[in-house]
Design a protein around this nucleic acid. Structure first.
Length: 493
RNA sequence: GGCGUCAUGGCCGAGUGGCUAGGCAGAGGUCUGCAAAACCUUCUACAGCGGUUCGAAUCCGCUUGACGCCUCCA
């Protein structure tokens, strides 16, 4: 029996503002779409946080036994500079600045994106479609919306008629906006727009002569509007209606709102059952921004080459830091916060290592089944990873107590304990035990054991100068000795 | 200005109408040749002001502040 049958999960649905019992359209199967990056520059750290949160969601759903098709797109065209659609394609702009081909920019930053995500131990999505690979689908979608009377063509560009749409549907239902408020709050136009109303958005944009990325269409040589690709690709790979759509909070409006509108205008149905929005990442209490310099990119954080942090942090520490807060909360990236997480992370990992060496007894003083269910309950409640981690630290306490002989565990419970820890720490949270994955660790362990024995002999002979020297010099190269009841162990953090 | 989200102890961060979050840091203890590690114990709390309630940090209202979107920035 798959785990999901005994583990109903609740998901906070952004469109209703409530936690709801999750029920997939097809039992045992889940379709999940997450808006991916625009590959015109190095991936933004905040973007990494969003994808990290959904990576955890993906991992947990898979762990529960769901067959998940996870689609995360690459936006490699059509992302306009601003909502008035007067800007140029971001990719084309960058290409001209750097004097290279647009697809070269796309390639470079796609590779960078994948490298960063691999470093952070992400699972690859099931499908990673590109906007440029789905121009035909996007044109078909525009045709349908025009046919249904919710779009109009002007001078080779096609716009979505928001006012018309709002007569039969509800534009703004995701972001809780009313069209009349939007009208009231729109800035005055400069009169250059082809749009009937400022709230309308482009489905197809005619390319200016100097615009490099362009495709033929029934209306003009041009490029698709920036909300269209997600609708086209989610429909193609997940169907007209699917289970989960995720993305950063900042995409809620207008991007996701427009996705709903496009889908309803084309097919008459709302595309998504559960909307999930990951909250923002801040740096030292305020928004990351290139213009103010309050920003750090993923590779700078990992290398330590930045002005905000006192040292480099490993991918595991950063993943752990992220998992210690809810995906729905604003997370503030600070030096103190990372240092605290680093210590906690290594404590958890030391516990994982120790778990392999503890011995079973005839009885259990710990209720492993209840503890295990607490872990599931945490994740079942809208993927509450902070509560899960609190339970994992309970587990670390158990491990240490067993190790010290202050608690005991039966063989069966120990097996369950090990497999559960493995499942949550490694599979669900995606953390890697760096201490154990060192290459040549067997030889290292052998060498350190020799030193441990020498130190024990020195201590037996009361030669504390020598024993302390061994301990201190090992510490100096990053090997910490830990004296326990049953001998000395070491860690290589 | 509009819409939305949020405000928790030294720091980070869960949760929630009455019952321990957790991590980091601090204090005391056990262990140790001394430490470290580990274990045990322990101190700081729910922005402010009203209201609902037997009871609110948790619900409602107002105030103040922060953040997001509305405008390029994930």
């Amino acid at each position: 029996m798959p785990l999901y049958q005994t583990n109903p999960i609740k998901i906070y649905n952004s469109i209703t503002g409530k936690k709801e019992i999750f029920k997939p359209i097809n039992e045992g199967h889940i379709g999940m779409y997450v808006c991916g990056p625009t590959v015109y520059s190095n991936v933004h750290l905040g973007n990494v946080r969003t994808f990290m949160s959904f990576d955890m969601v993906f991992r947990y759903l898979k762990h529960l036994g769901y067959k998940v098709r996870y689609v995360r797109n690459i936006t490699d065209a059509g992302h306009l500079e601003n909502d008035e659609d007067a800007g140029e394609d971001k990719v084309a702009k960058k290409a001209r600045l750097e004097q290279i081909e647009p697809m070269e920019v796309v390639q470079r930053y796609t590779v960078d994106f994948h490298n960063i995500l691999n470093t952070f131990n992400f699972l690859p999505p099931s499908i990673e479609p590109t906007a440029t690979g789905h121009i035909i689908e996007q044109i078909e979608l525009i045709n349908k919306i025009i046919e249904n009377g919710f779009a109009y063509e002007v001078n080779g560009s096609v716009y979505f008629d928001v006012h018309k749409f709002n007569e039969a549907h509800e534009y703004g239902k995701l972001s809780k906006r009313k069209l009349e408020d939007l009208i009231h709050n729109t800035r005055a136009l400069d009169g250059q727009s082809d749009k009937k109303n400022p709230q309308d958005f482009a489905l197809w944009k005619k390319a200016e002569p100097q615009h490099i990325m362009r495709w033929p269409s029934p209306w003009s040589d041009g490029f698709p509007g920036w909300h269209l690709e997600c609708t086209a690709m989610s429909t193609k790979y997940l169907g007209e209606q699917f289970d989960i759509h995720g993305g950063g909070m900042d995409l809620k409006f207008p991007h996701h709102e427009c996705e709903i509108a496009q889908n309803e205008a084309a097919k008459g149905i709302s595309p998504v059952n559960y909307w999930m929005h990951a909250n923002m990442l801040e740096l030292n209490g305020s928004r990351m921004s290139k213009s103010t310099g309050n920003t750090v990119n993923p590779s700078e954080l990992l290398s330590g080459e930045n002005k905000f942090f006192s040292k480099a942090f490993t991918p595991g520490v950063i993943r752990f830091f992220n998992a210690q807060s809810s995906y729905r909360s604003v997370l503030d990236l600070t030096n103190d916060g990372l240092l605290a997480s680093e210590k906690g992370f290594y404590r958890l990992m030391d516990g994982m290592s120790l778990l392999n060496s503890i011995k079973a007894s005839d009885n259990s003083t710990i209720d492993i089944a209840t503890w295990r269910q607490n872990c599931y309950d945490a994740m079942n409640d809208d993927f509450n990873s902070p509560i899960l981690i609190a339970n994992l630290f309970e587990a670390v306490k158990y491990i240490n107590q067993i190790k010290e002989g202050k608690a005991s565990i039966t063989k069966d419970d120990l097996e369950l304990f090990k497999s559960t820890m493995h499942a949550f720490v490694l599979d669900v949270l995606g953390l890697e035990n760096t201490a154990e994955s060192n290459s040549g660790s067997d030889k290292l362990a052998g060498a350190v054991d020799v030193l441990i024995k020498l130190r024990q002999e020195a201590r037996a002979n009361k030669d504390f100068a020598l024993s302390d020297k061994i301990r201190d010099e090992l510490a100096a190269v990053g090997i910490q000795l830990k004296d326990g009841k049953e001998g000395t162990t070491f860690t290589t953090n």
